[in-house]
C-alpha cells in the first residue's frame, strides 16, 4: 500500500467518488418526489423535510450513539411531514404547491428550533462499505468506499421502477396520477393513494437529510442544505418521472458538482467558483434543451397540477 502516482486519473476517480457522495441526497429526495408526483401531486416541501431529517438524525445519533437509529427516526419524521402535506391537500380546494411552500418554511424553521443544541457536538457518523479492498492504490480505495444510503437509493430506484410496472400498488399510483376519473371509476380513492405516496416520499426525503448530517458533510448546522430539496424536485421533471431517470440525473448532477473540487486537487484552480455553479448551469441548459413552449412534457402524470 502506498500513494502510487496515478497522474490525471485522479480527476475521473474524484468525479466518480464525488458523484456518488453528492448525488445521494438528490437521489433519495428525487425518488421520494417521483413517487409523490406519479400519483398526481407535487410536494415542494421536501426542502423542509430534508432539514427535519438531517436535524433529527443528527440529534438521535448524538443522544443514542447509533447513527442507524438516527436514519430510522429521520425517515419517520419525513413520513410525518409527508403525511401532513397529504392530509392537508386532501381537503377540498387546497392547492398542493402552496401547501408545499408553507411546509418547506415550516420544516426548515422547526429544524432550526429543535436543532440549536446539536450545533457543535460531534455525533457518530454512518459507516461506508469498502469496495476497494482489491486495490493497493489509496485513491481507488477511497473512491470505492461507498456509503450505505447510496446503495439503498440505488436499490430503491430499481425497486420503484419495477414496482410501477408490476405491482398492484405501483399500478394504482399510476392510475391515480394519470386520470382521476378512471381511478374513481375503478373504485380507488385518489386522496388516500396520494396521501400514502406523499408520506412515503417524505420518508425517503428524511433519509436523504440524514445523509447530509451523518455522512457528508457529516455535521449539523443551519446552512446544511443549499436547496437540495428544491433541486431534487426539478430533477424529477428532468428525469421524466422515471425512477431510473432520477438515478442518472442525480449522478450527473453529483458528478458535475464534484468536478470543481476534483480539478482543484490536481492544481487546476482557475474559475473554482464558476465550476461550483456547473451543476446548476447544467440543469438549466438541459431543461432548456429538452423543453418546448409548444409541447407538453412527455411522461408527465396527467393529473399533476404543473401539467394541467
Amino acid at each position: 500500500m502506498g500513494d502510487t502516482d496515478i497522474g490525471y486519473w485522479v480527476v475521473p476517480l474524484a468525479v466518480f467518488a464525488g458523484a456518488i457522495r453528492v448525488s445521494t441526497p438528490f437521489l433519495l429526495v428525487s425518488l421520494g418526489e417521483c413517487l409523490t408526483e406519479k400519483s398526481g401531486r407535487i410536494n415542494l416541501g421536501l426542502e423542509g423535510t430534508l432539514m427535519i431529517g438531517a436535524m433529527s438524525a443528527y440529534g438521535v445519533s448524538y443522544l443514542t450513539g447509533s447513527p442507524w437509529l438516527g436514519v430510522g427516526i429521520a425517515a419517520m419524521a419525513g413520513m410525518m411531514m409527508g403525511f401532513l402535506h397529504g392530509i392537508i391537500c386532501s381537503l377540498p380546494r387546497v392547492n398542493d404547491t402552496a401547501v408545499g411552500i408553507a411546509l418547506m418554511l415550516f420544516g426548515t424553521g422547526l429544524a432550526f428550533y429543535f436543532g440549536k443544541p446539536f450545533i457543535g457536538p460531534q455525533a457518530p457518523a454512518l459507516p461506508s462499505i469498502e469496495f476497494g479492498w482489491w486495490s493497493d492504490i489509496g485513491q481507488i480505495k477511497s473512491a470505492l468506499s461507498i456509503n450505505v444510503l447510496f446503495i439503498f437509493g440505488l436499490v430503491m430506484a430499481f425497486v420503484i421502477s419495477w414496482g410501477f410496472k408490476s405491482t398492484r400498488w405501483g399500478m394504482i399510483i399510476r392510475v391515480v396520477g394519470d386520470s382521476e376519473d378512471a381511478a374513481r371509476a375503478m373504485g380507488f380513492n385518489p386522496n388516500f393513494v396520494r396521501t400514502v405516496t406523499t408520506a412515503a416520499g417524505g420518508a425517503l426525503a428524511g433519509m436523504g437529510g440524514s445523509f447530509l448530517s451523518l455522512f457528508y458533510p457529516g455535521v449539523w448546522h443551519e446552512g446544511l442544505s443549499s436547496g437540495q430539496g428544491i433541486v431534487a424536485v426539478v430533477l424529477v421533471i428532468f428525469a421524466r418521472w422515471n425512477p431510473l431517470g432520477c438515478l442518472y440525473a442525480s449522478l450527473l448532477f453529483g458528478g458535475a458538482g464534484a468536478l470543481g473540487p476534483a480539478l482543484q486537487s490536481v492544481g487546476f484552480s482557475g474559475g473554482y467558483h464558476l465550476l461550483n455553479v456547473a451543476p446548476y448551469f447544467l440543469t438549466l441548459v438541459i431543461m432548456i434543451l429538452t423543453s418546448s413552449s409548444k409541447q407538453r412534457l412527455s411522461g408527465a402524470p396527467g393529473e399533476l397540477s404543473v401539467n394541467r
Binding site: I172, V175, D178, A182, M186
Partner: peptide, 14 residues
C-alpha cells in the same frame, strides 16, 4: 374512463 398512458391490457387488468 381509461388511463391514457396505460395499454389496453393494463387498463383491463387494473
Amino acid at each position: 374512463t381509461l388511463v391514457p398512458s396505460m395499454t389496453v391490457l393494463e387498463n383491463l387488468v387494473m
